[in-house]
């Protein structure tokens, strides 16, 4: 399959189940909401080293938030529910509670409950106040600046982590430009985040290593400087590869983001130096979610293995 001169390789991105949750963080100004969002989702590129993968899903207008103030919507994913229950209160306590003017609300209704104020309310040393509306409880924690308002807990979803595609381009500059275009388009898709810096990862990895104790290592098959010394996936014309990794609340959301991203890259096309779109997988035996690039680009949807 060739779209605007870009080869869509006949392969698939292989993704894993993750559990995720959404937080709505509001603040007096959009700037402070964004600061809270960035801080909370900082150092959260990969579960391998960060314990979770997180990002700002989108910014919210005052009309969209529970307290009528500007806000951001954050998605946080972890490998299992136990880890999620640990990392969310930790980030909430360190990055939202501390951030001027913020409040934090549940962004997902259903699913297993992830504690928010349920855990951090004890910071208020007995002065915490709870209020139950319908079957939803929120807390008010007196702080130096005023009160920190926070929902008792939030819901969770069984999401998908590690959706991806690779942009094979002639040069680093062209690869980066294409990746930026993809990210700009993809962040509009609801229900996903691109956890890596600026949404892009340059150090894509393969499973395993020659060194004991390392689970992942450089994806040498796609490293242009190793072409010829290892079995390579890169034709001669490819000078640089960038990957976009996608975590989402559902298979559909990740598939849609994949489609939107590839479409944006293809719009740049061969003319802009894009050679091919590829994807990372492990032969289909490790992750249950397979995003087949050609199918996605043909039908706008994928399938699960």
């Amino acid at each position: 399959m060739i779209l605007n001169g870009v080869e869509i390789r006949d392969t698939f991105a292989e993704a894993f189940p993750m559990v995720g949750t959404r937080l709505i963080v509001t603040a007096d100004t959009p700037e402070w909401a964004l600061i809270a969002g960035r801080t909370t989702t900082g150092f959260a590129t990969s579960v391998i080293g960060c314990g979770c993968e997180a990002g700002i899903e989108r910014t919210l207008t005052p009309e969209e938030t529970p307290d009528g103030r500007p806000g951001v919507s954050l998605l946080i994913f972890a490998m299992d529910f136990g880890s999620l229950k640990k990392v969310v209160p930790l980030r909430l306590g360190q990055c939202v509670l501390t951030c001027p003017t913020t409040a934090c609300y549940a962004g997902i209704e259903g699913g297993k409950r992830v504690p928010l104020a349920k855990t951090i309310r004890y910071f208020a040393d007995g002065h915490q106040i709870s209020k139950k509306i319908g079957d939803k409880r929120f807390w008010r924690l007196p702080v130096m600046e005023g009160e920190f308002v926070c929902d008792e807990d939030t819901g969770s979803v069984e999401g998908v982590g590690g959706g991806n595609f690779l942009i094979l381009a002639r040069s680093r500059g062209e690869a980066l430009k294409a990746a930026e275009a993809a990210v700009a388009a993809m962040v509009q898709v609801p229900g996903i985040i691109l956890p890596f810096p600026g949404g892009v990862v340059r150090s894509g990895s393969k499973v395993g290593s020659k060194y004991k104790g390392l689970f992942a290592s450089s994806n040498d098959a796609y490293c242009p400087t190793l072409r010829g010394t290892v079995p390579s996936q890169l034709p001669d014309e490819v000078g640089s590869v960038l990957e976009i990794v996608i975590d989402g609340v559902s298979f559909e959301a990740v598939a849609e983001a994949t489609r939107v991203g590839i479409t944006a890259v293809c719009a740049i096309g061969a003319e802009g130096g894009v050679v091919a779109i590829d994807a990372g997988n492990y032969g289909g035996n490790l992750g249950p979610f397979h995003f087949k690039l050609r199918e996605i680009m043909q039908n706008g949807a994928g399938e699960t293995a």
Partner: peptide, 14 residues
């Protein structure tokens, strides 16, 4: 007197 975020929340939720 205090500026309370909770007021805005309650006004919208209830």
């Amino acid at each position: 007197a205090h500026e309370l975020v909770a007021l805005r929340l309650i006004a919208r939720r209830v």
